[in-house]
Design a protein around this nucleic acid. Structure first.
Lengths: 354, 354
DNA sequence: CTGAAAGCGCTTACAG
DNA sequence: CTGAAAGCGCTTACAG
């Protein structure tokens, strides 16, 4: 069914059909009603391509998931968010949130997963083909910087979620990042409130920005409290379960073990729990543990893990909203925002008796 | 950049550019090379809408996630699949697998989440607008049957993953389902192999097909082994954690408790573990537990849960492949397939000493 | 081997 | 208020 067909049936011209659909003024209500009724009856919908070609925005964004080999920086995206409407972990909150927000703002969402540098050409094409009005990038690493900068230079609209790019403020793009520093401050402050003064940290890969920021938050919070941060309070891990195991062993077999450990991500906690259990110790009675990321599995750990949630769904929603806004205004925007981190209190930390 | 522009630069006509791009024969290699080189150089890509409008397939499918209110039938989609290329649970294996497979077959994937009956109109529109060539539906319930049957009648191409629709063989659509029966047989056979002869089952909602199939597999496997299935071996749950808790209490406080329990989904196991722990019993020393679904959290339970994996990513991949094949052949196909279920052996079942 | 032209199904100034 | 016509950027018979 084409608009021509519908026009004939109604004894009108295509122009009028089009005007009704596009909500032009100066059309009598009778005509309007007649047209809409026929549209419903015949299940007419304007051909998307023709519409687009004639100059109407198609309202489509892409979500580009970058998972290029040797890319290990996505560790802190493992999370879940219980504020989502559906509780089943259908798929990650980031993708859900972007799609949801796009749909809410009446946009379609195309999802594309990129596994290799080679696939980046396809991403470029999606833009050049005018298939989309803009895109949200997730998991960006250095590999795709050139592409993204190119696209920005060509006036394409892009948003990046939790990019590891540091000096991004100067680009005409939207950057929404997790606030690792704030999250870390919250974690350590919580331990201090519970009365812990002897605290260790198992860090992530210290060549990763997120790991560094978490460590810096740890140090500065303790210092502010007048606690000297010495070498033996820091164990350098790498965000893997194995390093969490080693880190916990390291601290708990020391001559003067801490009463609490800040583990820089929840994955490492899995290893840490294992080590603790092997040493015959219990969480939180013998050692308090706080994690970071609020990974999907954290509530199922034994005991359920107190950790830091950085609401990726909130970040995703924000990025999507800003992207679509800039699409509607047909204007690039340079925005850098940090998202809140919140403490999720569960059962892995104990208040210290005085 | 339009094909016209490129043509001018090269001193050719749009026709020739188009022929090179669409791989027409009878074009001298020199021309071909010249054109491709320019395409690369100027980052030219044919406008997707114009192309589509001119009759070229756009190669786009949709994934429609149905999550309409009062819809509780998605319980058994909670799962994860470790065969996926990236280990991080970015989002569910179903969506990843569909997108991946689509991308591999050179198709774009549009994802749409439907929360209300009202949104179904939008789904209808996606088809009528000719935005897509076909769609994979996930989580279908009765609510959207009318829509789907309509679309099928209109010769649209659709595939359904794990639909609860029973009499689907007569429709010209692709149905790929989990084999609940086979999975259940595998679970119970495993318990029998370990020497368990006194086995209980906590069922799911018995008004759901999946729950019924799992129960039937349980009964038939025991019968085949010459074990009488009596009422007291069956506890009717409803796939929720709470009912798992009650079910476990029920069995373990009975006068003659079983040595193993087949719990019809992993979510109920969470409750069952809680009950067992409260009763001062241990898994698997005092009671063996086997689950169903291989939910994402199952390896993190304590002890890690032995369960049945129904590889939703495999189902998704298969559905996508068949859908795209039928798109390429421009022909509806009526296909009903069941996917394999496999046992995932972890630490929640014990071999019984003779 | 390649160009000129029709056509895909819309939207939107331009007339009236 | 509404129709006829141009134009969006391609592809593809049709000629040559």
């Amino acid at each position: 069914m084409r608009s021509e067909d519908l026009a004939k049936i109604l004894g009108l011209s295509r122009s009028t059909i089009s005007r009704v659909i596009n909500n032009y003024p100066d059309i009598p209500q009778v005509t309007r009603d007649k047209v809409w009724k026929a549209i419903e009856e015949y299940n007419y919908a304007p051909n998307a391509s023709a519409r687009k070609l004639a100059g109407v925005k198609n309202k489509m964004i892409a979500i580009i998931l970058l998972d290029i080999k040797d890319n290990e920086d996505l560790h802190h995206i493992k999370t879940t968010d219980h504020t989502l409407i559906h509780e089943n972990p259908f798929f990650s909150p980031i993708v859900t949130a972007v799609i949801d927000q796009a749909n809410k703002m009446d946009y379609y969402a195309l999802v594309s997963i990129v596994y290799s540098k080679n696939d980046l050409k396809k991403v470029r094409n999606i833009f050049h083909q005018k298939l989309i009005d803009g895109a949200v990038f997730v998991g960006t690493q250095e590999a795709e910087n050139d592409l993204i900068f190119d696209l920005i230079a060509q006036k394409h609209l892009v948003a990046m979620i939790d990019t590891s790019e540091v000096n991004n403020a100067n680009h005409n793009a939207i950057y929404i990042n997790a606030d690792n520093y704030e999250g870390s401050v919250k974690a350590v402050s919580y331990l201090l409130e519970l009365g812990h003064t002897s605290v260790g940290i198992i860090t992530g890969n210290l060549n990763k920005l997120s790991a560094i920021e978490r460590l810096v938050g740890f140090k500065s919070t303790l210092k502010k409290q007048g606690i000297d941060v010495t070498e033996h309070m820091i164990y350098e891990g790498d965000f893997t379960e194995a390093s969490g195991y080693e880190g916990a062993k390291h601290f708990l077999t020391a001559s003067n073990p801490p009463t609490a450990i800040f583990v820089s991500n929840d994955t490492m906690v899995v290893g840490a729990y294992k080590a603790i259990s092997e040493l015959g110790l219990r969480v939180p009675q013998d050692i308090s543990i706080i994690g970071f990321d609020n990974s999907f599995f954290s509530p199922y750990l034994n005991p359920p893990l107190t950790t830091i949630d950085i609401s990726f769904s909130g970040i995703a929603k924000r990025a999507t909203t800003l992207l679509i806004e800039s699409i509607e205004q047909e204007q690039q925007r340079g925005i850098v925002e940090k998202a809140n981190a919140t403490l999720v209190e569960r059962e892995s930390c104990q208040r210290l008796k005085k």
